[in-house]
């Protein structure tokens, strides 16, 4: 009898209370994910652009990675999202690089090209980015050009380690998690990347 009363009490619970709680959880997760993704999207694009040397491919890689994170890992703790996202992105970049290699290794050595303009005029999209002034801009232009060229030519694992540690600011443990390797490997790849870049850019920087 007690069990029956308990069950009756349970069945009489209004459904919408449970649904409202789940909707609130969904909204909370959605907001947290939105905040996280907007904090990483530009740097993720830059990492993909340096790895793929093509803006359209880089955008595809970032979108695919965002989608994968939300579809498969939204329920994970928020502190896991960063290494997970960059692991997914690294995998995606590698997949696209391999497909490109099959089509022809020569593609990897073409200069970065901008996406074709396929869309209607969008005043927001056409808005200029910030401008620090002509002289400073020239100096930065040169620095950006040489650095990006040097980073793009690093071996993939060194490039990954360098960008995740130096640019994205992941610690050694997070970088190891994102790269799927040991912390020792991360340190080795990062050290070698720095040595290569120093040798190539020492005078410019």
């Amino acid at each position: 009898m007690t069990a029956f009363v308990t069950l009756a009490g349970v069945y009489s619970t209004p459904v919408f209370n449970g649904e409202r709680s789940r909707d609130q959880d969904l909204m909370t997760t959605s907001r947290a994910l939105d905040q996280f993704l907007s904090s990483v999207e530009k740097r993720a694009f830059k990492i993909a652009q340096l790895g793929l040397r093509n803006d359209d491919d880089a955008l595809d890689a970032v979108q695919d990675s965002m989608m994968k994170l939300v579809q498969s890992y939204a329920s994970r703790a928020a502190e896991e999202w960063r290494p997970l996202f960059y692991r997914i992105l690294a995998n995606r970049i590698r997949d696209m690089q391999r497909r490109r290699t099959v089509r022809g290794r020569i593609m990897a050595w073409l200069p970065v090209r901008d996406a074709e303009d396929e869309e209607d005029f969008d005043p927001v999209a056409q808005a200029p980015s910030h401008d620090p002034g002509p002289a400073k801009r020239l100096e930065l232009d040169e620095a950006i050009g040489v650095l990006e060229a040097a980073v793009a030519e690093l071996p993939p694992r060194q490039q990954q380690a360098f960008l995740l540690r130096n640019f994205e600011g992941l610690d050694v443990g997070e970088t190891a998690s994102a790269m799927g390797c040991s912390e020792g490997s991360v340190k080795t790849h990062y050290f070698r990347a720095l040595e290569s870049l120093r040798a190539r850019l020492g005078e410019v920087f």
């Binding site: 530009k42 056409q126 980015s129 930065l140 950006i144």
Partner: peptide
């Protein structure tokens, strides 16, 4: 330099 490069991403 990489941060500056990222800050220069165009509107599109």
């Amino acid at each position: 330099v990489l941060e500056e490069s990222t800050a220069r991403l165009d509107g599109r």
